[in-house]
C-alpha cells in the first residue's frame, strides 16, 4: 500500500528478482490459497450475485425477471422494513452496552486473586456454549406464562407474573435480559485483556496515591480500551444479525415486537420466496451495519488507546 509498492506494481513481479524470491511469492500464495479460494467462492461471487438479485424479481419457479429499482421502491412502501429495523436497533443499542458492562464487571471480579476463579469462569462461560436451540427451549419453559419457572416462583411470593414473551411491550426487554446469559465470550476476552495490563502501572499509580477507582479510570480503562473496542464492534455486528432465538421462540411475535431484520429477510427468502426482495433487504442491513462499524472506527480514534509497543506486535 505504500508508495514504493505502487511504483513496483507497474512492473511484473519477477522483474529484478532472483528465482528464490519468485518461489517465495508462489509459495506464500499457495499456502494462502484455501482462503483466497474461499473469499472468491463465498464472498466475491455471492456479493456480485446479490447485486444482480436486487434488480430481479425471482420466486425460483419462474425465470428471474428484471424489475429495475422495483425492489427498492417496494422496500420504501413496506412498513415491516422500518419496524424490523426499529426492533433490531432497539435490541442492539440497549443490549450491547449492558452486556459489555456486565461482562467487564465479571472479568474485573475474576481478575482478583480469589479462590475458585476457574470454577466461576466455567459457570459464567457454559451458557455461551449452550446451543441456541437448546437455550431457546430452556427459556421458553422458564418464561412460560402459566407453568414457567419464573412465574411459578413469583406466584409463591404472591405476585402474578406478566406474560413475558407473549406481551408486545415486554418481549424485546425480555430478549435483552435473556441474552445476558451468553456474555461468557466477551468476559473471557476482557479477562485476557486485564491480565495483559502490566502490574507495574498499577503499582506506580498506587505509590502516587491513586485510589482504586482512579487506578481503574486512569490505568485499567485506557489499557483495556482496544479490547472494549473489539468487543463493541463485534458485539454490534452480531446483535444486528440476531435470528435464531427470535425465529424459534417468538417467530417474530407477539404483534411483530420481535420481528428482527434478519428474521424478516429469512421470511422473504425462504417462506415467501422473493429472492430479489430478500437480497435488497440484506443489502440495506449490510450498509447500516457497515455505517455503524465505520462510525465506531472514527469515534474509536478518540477513546481507544494503542500503546506503541503493542502496535508493532
Amino acid at each position: 500500500m505504500s508508495q514504493t509498492n505502487l511504483v513496483a506494481r507497474r512492473l511484473p513481479f519477477w522483474t529484478g528478482r532472483s528465482s528464490r524470491q519468485v518461489r517465495a511469492e508462489i509459495e506464500g500464495f499457495l499456502y494462502a490459497s484455501p482462503f483466497i479460494l474461499g473469499v472468491l467462492a463465498f464472498w466475491v461471487i455471492p456479493l456480485g450475485y446479490s447485486i444482480a438479485l436486487v434488480f430481479m424479481d425471482w420466486n425460483l419457479l419462474a425465470p428471474p425477471k428484471f424489475v429495475g429499482l422495483g425492489n427498492v421502491v417496494k422496500m420504501i412502501g413496506d412498513k415491516y422494513v422500518g419496524l424490523s429495523l426499529y426492533n433490531t436497533a432497539f435490541y442492539t443499542f440497549i443490549s450491547v452496552p449492558l452486556h459489555l458492562m456486565l461482562a467487564l464487571a465479571l472479568a474485573l471480579a475474576l481478575n482478583q486473586p480469589l479462590r475458585g476463579v476457574s470454577a466461576y469462569r466455567t459457570i459464567f462461560y457454559l451458557p455461551a456454549v449452550t446451543p441456541a436451540v437448546a437455550s431457546s427451549i430452556i427459556w421458553l419453559q422458564i418464561l412460560h406464562s402459566e407453568f414457567g419457572l419464573l412465574n411459578q416462583t413469583l406466584a409463591m411470593l404472591g405476585i402474578e407474573g406478566p406474560r413475558w414473551l407473549w406481551e408486545p411491550d415486554l418481549a424485546k426487554p425480555v430478549f435483552i435480559v435473556m441474552t445476558f446469559w451468553t456474555i461468557g465470550p466477551q468476559m473471557v476476552i476482557f479477562l485476557a485483556g486485564l491480565q495483559a495490563v502490566p502490574g507495574e502501572l498499577h503499582e506506580a499509580a498506587a505509590i502516587d496515591g491513586a485510589s482504586t477507582w482512579q487506578r481503574f479510570r486512569s490505568v485499567t480503562l485506557p489499557m483495556l480500551s482496544p479490547v472494549i473496542f473489539f468487543n463493541l464492534v463485534i458485539g454490534i455486528i452480531g446483535s444486528f444479525q440476531i435470528f435464531t432465538a427470535a425465529f424459534l421462540m417468538t417467530a417474530g411475535g407477539p404483534d411483530n415486537a420481535t420481528l428482527f431484520k434478519v428474521l424478516y429477510i429469512y421470511r422473504n427468502a425462504f417462506q415467501y420466496f422473493s429472492m430479489g426482495y430478500a437480497a435488497a433487504l440484506a443489502w440495506l442491513l449490510f450498509w447500516i451495519i457497515l455505517a455503524f462499524t465505520f462510525l465506531q472506527f472514527k469515534l474509536g480514534r478518540q477513546w481507544v488507546y494503542y500503546e506503541t509497543e503493542l502496535k508493532e506486535g
Binding site: 517465495a24 473469499v39 450475485y49 446479490s50 444479525q241 429477510i265 427468502a269 443489502w283 449490510f286
Partner: peptide, 27 residues
C-alpha cells in the same frame, strides 16, 4: 512467509470478519 500480496490478503481476512455475512445468505 514473505510475499507481496500478504498484507492485502490479511486485510481481506479482517474485512470478512467485519462484514455482515447476512448479505451473502441468499446468493
Amino acid at each position: 512467509l514473505r510475499w507481496r500480496a500478504r498484507d492485502f490478503v490479511f486485510a481481506v481476512a479482517l474485512a470478512t470478519m467485519m462484514l455482515p455475512g447476512i448479505v451473502t445468505l441468499v446468493p
